[in-house]
Amino acid sequence: MTETNPTVNSAGYEVPPELRQNVAITTLDKIWNMGRRYSVWPMMFGLACCAIEMICTAASRYDLARFGMEVMRPSPRQSDLMIVSGTVTKKMIPQIVRLYNQMPEPKYVLAMGACASGGGPFKEGYNVVSGVDQYVPVDVYVPGCPPTPQALLHGLMKLQEKIDSESITQVRWYGKEDIPAIPVPLLGPDLIDPRDNELIKQETSKKPAAPAAAPAAPAPAAEAAS
C-alpha cells in the first residue's frame, strides 16, 4: 500500500515517516468502503440501446475491470449494482422490480441514459415508464442518449463517491427493521402499481366528465362505439 492512498489513510492520525510503507491508520468506514467501491459487481442486464454502450464499456477500450466491476453477473443474487440501461417499458417493469427485490443488500441502481432516468425521447409512448425511479430507488443518474462509455464510467465513479460517503453505523441494511420488498406491478388494462390501488379506485370511480389531463383508455367495446 502506498503511503499516499487518500482513500484509506485517515486524516488526523500522524504515522511516523519510517513506518508509512507498512502502517496505515484508518477508520473502519474507510477500509470497509474501499473494499466495497472496488468490487461493485453489476448485473448483466441490458434493456435497450444503452446496453450496447454498457457492453462497450466492459469491452477492451474502456475496460470496466480497471474499476473492479468486470464481474457481470447474470443473476441478481450475486450482484451489487443494477445498471438500468435503456427504456423501461410497462411490460418490463414487473421483471425489473422483481430483480431488484432479489438483489441482496447493499444494492445500488444506476439509471443509464435519458430513458431510464426520466422516460427519454419515448416518454410519451403508451408502453413506456417515465423513469425507473418511479418504482425502484435510483442512486446515480447518467444523462445522455445514449451516454458514451466514458460518461457511464463517470457515472460509476459518482457511485463510488456515494459508496465512500456511507458509514457502516448508519446504513439501512444493518438496521433493526426489515427493508420491505417493493410490490411488483401488475399488467392490467394498464400498468397497476399496487401502492396506487386506493388512488386508482378513487380516480376511476369519478364521474366520466372528470378526466381532464388523462382521458381514460377506452375499453375495446367502448372504443369501437366512439
Binding site: N197, K201, T204
Partner: peptide
C-alpha cells in the same frame, strides 16, 4: 414534467370503474 399532470404521477390511465383490488 408531464407526469405531474397525471393523477397517478405516472404514465397510466385506467378505464372507468376499474377496481384494481
Amino acid at each position: 414534467r408531464i407526469e405531474d399532470r397525471n393523477p397517478f404521477n405516472k404514465n397510466n390511465a385506467y378505464p372507468q370503474g376499474f377496481d384494481p383490488t
